[in-house]
Structure formats: structure tokens, C-alpha cells
Design a binder for these strands. Structure first.
Length: 216
DNA sequence: ATATCGATTATCT
DNA sequence: GATAATCGATATG
């Protein structure tokens, strides 16, 4: 299901939006737009899947062990980019939440491309032959980071609330309809917490697209 | 459709 | 030395 229409005007989210618990921030980010302003052609994509990582009482969060050089952005002002490198291969993008001094973040897991598809395909090193191939661009945290040319050196710590910046998050008026909530993907600690949020039925969502079945 | 595995490095024990 | 908020390739049902 292709849910989105590109819209001409996109207003950046303000810092107050992010100065909250990561759970409402995660829910609220669904349907918003990630913008890469300074690419050869501007890149925009709708946020369709995210995960919340809590500052306190969340063993799976990078902030669980306290403030370190790697994760210090999570303890800084809200609305800033926390970018980390994982498995020797991939960058992942988060946005810091909670007021400054308290940790918390939201991981971007999947996007639905709205503009700049050619540029994203080039950045990913793949070719798009049909609509069937589009999810390969931005379905998955490593993929979307590659599509937007997000690296730690370039983007860690930047302010995502300024439309004058290179990378920011905006609202184009889109209203999401259904939201699904499941456990987070790829973690071993606190694996059961229901902190993954995605737009129900959206084909760009990565991983399981339904609520887990109460098996047997 | 699910399962397994290698790649490759920052961070922590 | 082990692990990790992953991906892509390969194998098999």
C-alpha cells in the first residue's frame, strides 16, 4: 500500500516535539518526513517504522551504560542525530529525545521514498527496475542510512529541527491511519518490550508486518 | 517462505 | 576476545 503523497510545504518539527519520552515521540514520528537538503537533488522520504529506546530502565539502549564518547548525543539536547556504526558494515540513525541531560532516542527503521529515488539508488549501489524494487532503497535501518548518505563523521550530533540544516525532520500534513506496535528487532536484552512502531499495512516496513501471534 | 552465514569494526569485558 | 539496534547472498522447503 503506497500511502503517501508528496507535499509542497514541509514544516520542521520543533525541539519541544522531541523533549519527551521516546514512546510518544516514536508514535508521533510515523508519517513525518526525513529530508536531506544538500544532496545533488533533495531527498525526502516518509517515516514508516521506528523503535523507541528509553534512557532509563532499558537494557537494550546504547545509553544504558551511561554517557560515553560514542553515545553522548543521546544525553544532549533533544532533536539531534545520534549515528552509530554496527556490525562493521552499517550506519544507523536515531534522534535524541527527552530534555537535555536525560538519555533517550528513536531509531529510524524504514522510510517510504517520496523524492530523489534516483539519487538514493546511486547511494545504495543498486538499480531500480520496477516498483517492486523500491523497498530495497530504504527498508531497514542500514539501508535508509546508506540511501541518505548518513555517516557518523558527517551527521552525528547535527540538529534535526532546523530546515536550514543538511538533514531534518518535517511535517507535510500527512495523517497516518493505523499504527501497529510489536517488540523491537535484532536485540537480545529487553527483547520483549513492545517499542517498535510502524504504519499498519505499509509495504516499506522492514521485518514482521503483523502483530506477533500468540503461538500454539 | 524461513534458515544460516560471512562481512568488518567500535565498544566493552 | 566477544558482541552488536544489519544486510546480502545462498541454501533449502
Amino acid at each position: 500500500m503506497t500511502s503517501s503523497k508528496p507535499s509542497a510545504l514541509i514544516r520542521p518539527l520543533d525541539q519541544a516535539f522531541f523533549a519527551r519520552n521516546p514512546r510518544p515521540v516514536a508514535r508521533g514520528l510515523l508519517g513525518k518526513v526525513l529530508v536531506r537538503q544538500d544532496a545533488p537533488t533533495p531527498l525526502t522520504a516518509r517515516i514508516v517504522e521506528v523503535e523507541a529506546y528509553l534512557g532509563a530502565n532499558d537494557p537494550a539502549a546504547h545509553s544504558a551504560a551511561g554517557n560515553t564518547p560514542r553515545n553522548s548525543v543521546l544525553f544532549g539536547p533533544p532533536g539531534h542525530a545520534y549515528v552509530y556504526f554496527i556490525y562493521g558494515n552499517h550506519y544507523c540513525l536515531n534522534v535524541s529525545c527527552e530534555p537535555e541531560g536525560r538519555a533517550g532516542g528513536v531509531l529510524f527503521r524504514a522510510l517510504e521514498p517520496l523524492s530523489g529515488v534516483e539519487e538514493m539508488a546511486r547511494a545504495r549501489g543498486i538499480e531500480i527496475h520496477s516498483d517492486k524494487d523500491l523497498p530495497k532503497l530504504t527498508s531497514g535501518p542500514g539501508r535508509l542510512a546508506a540511501a541518505f548518505c548518513i555517516t557518523r563523521a558527517r551527521d552525528n550530533g547535527i540538529d534535526l529541527t532546523s530546515s536550514a540544516g543538511s538533514l531534518w525532520i518535517g511535517d507535510d500534513g500527512y495523517r497516518s491511519r493505523g499504527i501497529s506496535i510489536t517488540p523491537r528487532i535484532g536485540i537480545t536484552k529487553a527483547a520483549e518490550y513492545p517499542l517498535r512502531y510502524f504504519l499498519t499495512g505499509n509495504r516499506f516496513v522492514s521485518g514482521p508486518k503483523t502483530l506477533p501471534r500468540v503461538d500454539k
